[in-house]
């Protein structure tokens, strides 16, 4: 990865962080907790995080609260978001050379 990619990546990341900061407090809290959870379970997918912010901005603009939008079970929402993408557990399993389990398309 060249210097330019790193700089470009950082710029994008800080732009993303600024968008998160601009969200209403309830959205910001939920987003930050979600990000912590998503980073724990799987390889970071920044485009997914950007999509979530798009969605949250839309909901906030429509005057909805975050719970109205995604419900109380934030973890279930996260799990649905990453359904189909590999978790760390699956990455480990694949690299161990074992049979990949049924992923269920």
């Amino acid at each position: 990865m060249g210097i330019r990619d790193i700089v470009e990546g950082k710029k994008q990341w800080w732009a993303h962080v600024a968008r998160v900061k601009a969200l209403p407090p309830d959205y910001r809290i939920v987003y930050q907790e979600m990000q912590r959870y998503l980073f724990k379970i799987g390889p970071a997918d920044t485009s997914l995080l950007a999509d979530v912010v798009d969605f949250f901005e839309e909901g906030a603009a429509a005057g909805k609260g975050v719970r109205q939008l995604i419900g109380d079970d934030v973890a279930a929402f996260c799990d649905d978001l990453v359904k189909g993408s590999p978790t760390y557990a699956e990455v480990r399993r694949e690299s161990a050379g074992g049979e990949p389990g049924p992923t269920g398309k």
Binding site: L48, I70, F77, D80
Partner: peptide
């Protein structure tokens, strides 16, 4: 069915 659930489905349809 809440909007968040539909959103995750739409995202998956888009990615697929």
């Amino acid at each position: 069915v809440i909007e968040g659930t539909v959103y995750t489905i739409l995202l998956r349809l888009e990615r697929n």
